[in-house]
Design a protein around this nucleic acid. Structure first.
Lengths: 271, 271
DNA sequence: GATTCAATCTGTGTATACATTGATTGAACT
DNA sequence: AGTTCAATCAATGTATACACAGATTGAATC
């Protein structure tokens, strides 16, 4: 039988990533222990792991809340993601098992046909991307790097619910992935890193564009959940002069508002 | 009053980083609770945080042990560190507060005089490097990236005890740091990243060289602590063909043996 | 009627008792 | 003498009880 703390962690994490538990939701030990049918001890352990993942954070020194997600968070996360995935792609290109990535080439070339099928969830496509990630993880053979990548992917999974990828974007992304895999098969370290950078740049642009259109559509639903002042006093410095060289993955200044699922506006405690 | 779990975590982490608790040491809850004078509950919380940090890991599904440190770990950690610090330096160059890094320029130029003093611990030098790290963290303004960097620094602190920096290397490192700071002051994103890569490459080479000489001197002391088979079945793939382009931060294949402080060979349980 | 102080109460932090699982040791049988 | 099975033991996993701190609500006073 699995441990109660593991089950609780998996369930809470799933509920946070699926936006069933929205940002700002209070994670009270007693309430969770009764809801999950276990005692407070394993609940505490699960909550500690969520805090370590960055999915929950202390709320004013008393109690935990689900961490917020903002447009700024997306940009920040992509700055970290870019660093990690460029390095991972470069290392994969130098240490890969060629057969594995040749198979991925074949699969990625079939994506247009795969997306032509009537599966609205595009599950097959996302499974293929997950297999690509797994292949890269196995190729880099670096527990530290893979661990950092997994930490990023947790937050990516949560942010994915913010923007809805359109089919055209998925086709583009598949071609970008294919170029990365080509570079890895060829053992071209530089191209693998650069193609990864291109892919992430376009992916971020698509995500931000999707976010901008959605938040513009439902501007009133925001302020009901957000706190007036941001928890982290980040945006103090006015974005100093940025030379037009190899610029980091930044975009034009976006709204600092937190984002919640616009459709299902559940009863979030007033905190 | 501070929480018992926080005190326990800080103390255990300190003891692991200082090699007072060597790799492979069993972290038993009852023994720690009696040694630290607290109950098992806060001890469990502290141990969970150590596992999240990568300083402890499950031992065969029952009990926790302090994680091992090997030469391979050093190389792997630097692969992650390179990705993170290059990105951090690039972002710092585009968002920095110029005054802060001008002050660091002045301090770094005084390092030769600072190292000429008779302080054997070089504490003033390491404090300056810590201030540099803090300035970069503040400049990048990215909680995700800073969090990942802090995770790396924990392991770096532990590995620092493996190799002893000689004064000549410290002087070089200070000049390399100064170049990075110059680039940040100038807002030169590309130079900041490249100078960081240079610094880390030379730092890794120095560390590996120091390790090689030390492990060669005391080859017999190794096998008494190491387990015969490595915990992670990593080194299966025979290091595929690596084109001579922008190579990742790898070195010639080093010994896969775990490393322990050669001098103080304490009573490590036989596990 | 508003403000302040106190009491209660809710929720986290800690301790301890109980349960369960895996290991180890001893004896018995082959 | 070796092997196997069983029993005991030790350590983790879980539950619960207790302590304490902060917040909220009520009443009393100005």
């Amino acid at each position: 039988m699995a441990r109660a703390s593991d089950s609780a962690y998996a369930r809470l994490r799933s509920e946070i990533l699926s936006w069933h538990l929205e940002p700002g939701t209070v994670l009270a030990e007693v309430e969770l222990s009764s809801r999950l049918g276990i005692s407070r001890t394993p609940v505490r352990e699960a909550l500690a792991r969520l805090v370590a993942d960055g999915l929950a954070e202390p709320q004013g020194g008393r109690g935990l809340v689900v961490t917020a997600v903002s447009v700024e968070n997306v940009t920040e996360l992509f700055e970290l993601r870019q660093a990690l995935e460029q390095q991972a792609a470069a290392l994969a290109a130098s240490r890969r098992d060629v057969a594995v990535f040749r198979a991925l080439q074949d699969e990625l070339r079939e994506v247009p046909a795969l997306l032509a099928t009537a599966d609205p969830s595009k599950q097959a496509y996302y499974d293929l991307v997950a297999r690509f990630d797994d292949a890269v993880d196995a190729a880099v053979q670096n527990p530290f790097l893979v661990g950092a990548l997994n930490g990023v992917r947790i937050h990516l999974a949560r942010m994915r619910r913010l923007s809805h990828d359109n089919p055209a974007r998925l086709l583009e992304a598949a071609r970008e992935h294919l170029l990365i895999v080509d570079a890895i098969v060829d053992g071209d370290v530089r191209l693998a890193a650069d193609a990864t950078r291109v892919h992430l740049y376009r992916s971020l642009q698509s995500t931000l564009g999707s976010l901008r259109s959605e938040t513009t559509l439902t501007p009133a639903a925001q302020s009901s959940v957000d706190e007036p002042a941001a928890a982290q006093p980040a945006a103090a410095q006015p974005a100093a002069a940025e030379p037009a060289t190899a610029e980091p993955a930044t975009a034009e200044p976006a709204t600092a508002q937190s984002i919640t699922e616009s459709a299902e506006q559940k009863d979030v405690p007033a905190r």
